[in-house]
Amino acid sequence: MKNFVIPETDYMVPGHLACPGCGASLGMRFALKALGEKTMVVVPACCWSIIAGPFPYSAVKVPLFHTAFETAASVASGLRAALDMQGQDDVTVMAWAGDGGTFDIGLQALSGAAERNEDFIYVCYDNEAYMNTGIQRSSATPEGAWTTTTPEGHVKDRPKKNIVDILAAHRIPYVATASVAYPHDFIRKLQKAQSMHGTRFIHLLSPCPPGWKIPSDDSIEIARLAVQTKLFPLYEIEDGEKVTINLEPDGLPVRHYFEKQGRFRYLTDADYERIQRDVDHRWEILKRKAEWAKE
């Protein structure tokens, strides 16, 4: 990573409508820097439906197609087919969807596209709830989180869905996690994905200050803590099997991550301990998978 240079050219312009500290706006900026001008973006209903700006404006300098909530992967499939029929092989199609449009309502279309190994990059910017509609729980919402539909007394009691394993199970060429706190890693992964064909999926953890109840200037720090506590490890899976861990975390206690966010204010010491055990357990599994891939 030492000599890795973030591309200077921006394809995202000032004037977008994201909240201060939004991980999703930063994520798009990095993504377009990585992929360049020969990129077309498909955006289903999500925060980015707003962030991109109302007609006749656009916050990006590449073609962008807004579409219905559950259709990012299927619209991207059709767009790719149209480009292929016109010999535009050098254009990258990127679907850019939130966690609701990926983990929940769009999962069927995404699974279908992945099974067909459609030739596009799909980035899920995961802010862990329906933030655009005002913080309702999704299947990406972590255990213990408050949302407006998991209020005090009924905070989410089920773990976050493991979307990375679901996608890897389709045995697509490339699945990776990424964080806005590690732009070099994210950009490298996008460029690696761009050099490949077939369905490439990147799961980007994307903090949401209003939804996570954090100060807007804490976004990056909290995104970094998610990685450093091993709650959200940075790794990639090639061809459904070859696991590579991209960063060895410091292994900070998970409570460092939770305590900074108002959405986790109902977690108790017992919860912290239980979640810590689970995180350690899953990290061991991931490490073994990575070791197994090396052999």
Binding site: V42, F65, T67, S74, V75, G78, A82, M85, A109
Partner: peptide
């Protein structure tokens, strides 16, 4: 949805 993407792409 795929027809929409394809048609928007000019096919």
């Amino acid at each position: 949805a795929a027809c929409i993407g394809a048609s928007a792409g000019g096919a």
